[in-house]
Nucleic acid binder design. Structure first.
Lengths: 229, 229
DNA sequence: TCCAATAAGTGTAAATTTTACAATTATATA
DNA sequence: TATATAATTGTAAAATTTACACTTATTGGA
């Protein structure tokens, strides 16, 4: 096989920007950072960075997410490559947006402080730099269409969670109320939930049973798809 | 707003590669080109090219599709950005894959010849350069998951088509037989088909009625989603 | 012109899933 | 012990999906 050396005249800067969603038990939130660097210092934005010569886009996203959260093994998917010519006033920069889900409790206050980071409810997301609001909107649409056909929650919920918490998550994703009888019937019929003999008493006197995900069935349905909506 | 000039040390070449699907009435086919240029001259590949400094990725895809097909207004979606470090042995090149659907009859023999292009049934797709087989596979998965939740056919079928042709398309996408009574009931219930008072006699003595898409309802359902599977 | 062949077009009953809807239960605290 | 709170549970009607086979329109050949 012949190796050619491509001309470099139209090489471009390529960034990765991460939309990080977390769930606090009742609301879906996005992790944003207040920039203490140029360009657009002082404004809110997604966490991002340039892709290096010697790393894949996925690796860059992992690196950037790790820098922001301190976490490894974050659930992450490539969302879309945003490539309008003038999306970044500082120069021609492509951005590959990544969609990540984390358990909000895994995120340390220390790192929040270090990065000027803040969790914003989706309703309250401020104006962001560049096309980051567009990315945010695409990420919200993505999780909605994903949740319609795949189980979600594994990455967003703590290991032990209750049915009301899981329902709150779906209600937060779709920003609408659901019937709890129908919801539990539906979710239990998927065989991805294992009921524990232990209750969470934090939000009611009666207490709600904890569940964990059946990891094997969850991953299978994540691949095969379900029909949630 | 302050304009910064980003360092250029990690700028990358970014290509666009197009997976073009067409439907010949019974089979789903992909448009491939036999390379008459380096690297990998003589091998089959997707049609692609580099993104220029002054064009968006979408514009590059339109340009490349137009060069290959002579067509404007091709149905097209960004699929995924492939960015492994060593995906192209000729150098570090990212590739944004685009997924396009065209009416196979719109494609001229002249252009087929000019570009060394050939329609391949999906079952017979040969070994392609780089990660193009991976892209092809992703495109097939994409059209399958898309067809499960959205109407498809507008871009792939001629303006007038018959119900058996539409069913053939769905059967080709899913590579499986469907019941024609259930299929027609389902599709007709979507209110996206307008029956013409005219028959296609090409494939039967009785003839099959032509239909056209109700463009408004089609576009609405394309946006809202349907539940096909 | 009549018959045979071909593919198009059509209906129904059973099974499953979805939807709408409200009473009971467990527990903590007053 | 009474009360308040949120969790848990069932059922009937409606809608959708599935499985399944005969009739129809037309052409070309006997």
């Amino acid at each position: 096989m012949s190796i050619v050396h491509y001309e470099k005249y139209d090489s471009l800067l390529v960034a990765v920007d991460c939309i990080v969603f977390g769930f606090d038990g009742s609301e879906l939130k996005a992790l944003l950072i207040k920039r203490d660097f140029e360009p657009q210092i002082g404004k809110w934005s997604l966490m991002g960075g340039f892709i290096h010569q010697d790393e894949s886009a996925d690796d860059a996203a992992v690196r950037i997410l790790n820098r922001l959260t301190g976490l490894d093994n974050i659930y992450m998917e490539q969302l879309h490559c945003f490539a309008d010519v003038n999306r970044d006033p500082g120069g021609r920069v492509l951005s590959i947006a990544y969609f990540a889900l984390i358990n909000i409790n895994d995120y340390s206050q220390q790192l929040m402080f270090t990065h000027n980071a803040q969790w914003y409810s989706l309703k309250d997301v401020p104006e962001l730099i560049f096309d980051h609001n567009t990315m945010m909107k695409a990420a919200l649409e993505h999780i909605r269409s994903k949740a319609a056909n795949h189980p979600v929650g594994f990455a967003l919920l703590p290991a032990k969670f209750t049915l009301p918490q899981l329902q709150n998550l779906y209600e937060a994703i779709y920003d609408s109320k659901m019937d709890k009888r129908n919801f539990s019937r539906k979710l239990l019929s998927l065989n991805i939930l294992i009921k524990l003999n232990e209750k969470d008493k934090a939000s009611s006197k009666k207490g709600a049973f904890y569940y964990i995900f059946d990891e094997e069935n969850y991953k299978r349905l994540e691949h095969e798809g379900i029909k949630f909506i």
